[in-house]
Design a protein around this nucleic acid. Structure first.
Lengths: 195, 195
DNA sequence: GTCTATATAAAGATAGAC
DNA sequence: GTCTATCTTTATATAGAC
């Protein structure tokens, strides 16, 4: 099998990702994946050495994209409000580009991190946290963000609100991700009290 | 087996809940559960008719508690800000009382709702949404909450931020759930901009 | 109420023909 | 690159002795 690239391979990964996202990695069988593609389960092993290898590829390319986009946001020299907004936009763009991988990560991190092969997920989580904390703490330092709330708590609340949108958000013409990003930013920064 | 009550039964449920929460329902085997309790897997079937039955009991009693508490919040005749705060407090109290069940629900809804037996989870989700929407919409009607954000979007963002705290929040003396509830309320209502 | 033993089904994975 | 056929392991669950 070895690691060719090809349309078939991508087709398998796409089907696998959809199934992993919908039922969970552990509950998805190689037979179901093969059925989706229209081949027999044994044939999958011509393209991938194991079910875990499929998960690995899906999650790895997801994290790669995420890292790239976050780095770009952090590199820009912008004011705290813009930076927070850009971090939210970047996250939602990753959700849009990798909806299945995002859902797999959100639902199955606990399970996956217990498998040795996926130990690297722990670092990925730390990197994401670090990016958000940099933005939040810079905002506090510049007096733009309140200092009475723990940055780590803020990070976790915003992170879950933003990333879990993968479970329900379906962009439309009237309500595209740019609008969701603006609404998130406004909720977090301005609050929902009328004043 | 039939359905006695007893300490042993509870012990099994507790071990099962912890494992389901940590690895996911599908990835947890009856052998692991039995190991945790210190008996052999076959003996579990004296207490429960299946693995699904265990999940069912855990989730059902969780939802029962949740429903009771939400009803109490909605019954009170309070102002919108207090109501929203109380809904957040109620949610966090449920998280504290049923951490494993909460995590199972958050991680495995997708998987569980695909099993006929757990179809009732769909209704549970709708009831929760309805409670939050009532509070949000009353706030808008009374001019306390901004009207430029879609209530359903607000609900989903706040819901995920609040409920997913089960994954990271460990109450301490300095930072108990009452404090987290206040920080959530303040973040959502006032926002994190300094002004 | 738990054990021994085992039935039964489903899972991941492989070998070799085509 | 896929199929047929099958190995091996692991899972849920059951029966009956203790």
């Amino acid at each position: 099998m070895a690691r060719e690239s090809g349309e078939r391979r991508e087709r398998i990964l796409a089907s696998a990702a959809a199934l992993f996202a919908n039922k969970g990695v552990a509950a998805t069988t190689v037979r179901e994946i093969a059925d989706e593609v229209g081949i027999l389960s044994g044939s999958l092993y011509h393209h991938f050495e194991s079910k875990e290898a499929m998960v690995d590829e899906i999650v790895t390319s997801y994290l790669e994209d995420l890292r790239t986009r976050y780095k770009r946001v952090l590199a820009a020299d912008t004011d705290p409000r813009t930076r927070l907004h850009d971090l939210i936009v970047a996250s939602l763009e990753v959700v849009e580009a990798h909806p299945h991988a995002t859902e797999i990560y959100q639902n199955d991190v606990n399970y996956l991190t217990q498998i040795e092969r996926f130990g690297y997920l722990r670092n990925a989580g730390k990197e994401v946290q670090s990016a958000w904390l940099q933005v939040i703490e810079a905002g506090i330092a510049q007096g733009v963000i309140r200092s009475d709330l723990d940055p780590k708590i803020l990070y976790r609340l915003m992170r879950d609100a933003v990333w879990l949108s993968v479970r329900w958000f379906k962009p439309t013409k009237e309500y595209p991700i740019t609008r969701l990003a603006e609404d998130c930013t406004s909720l977090f920064l301005d609050g929902l009290s009328r004043r």
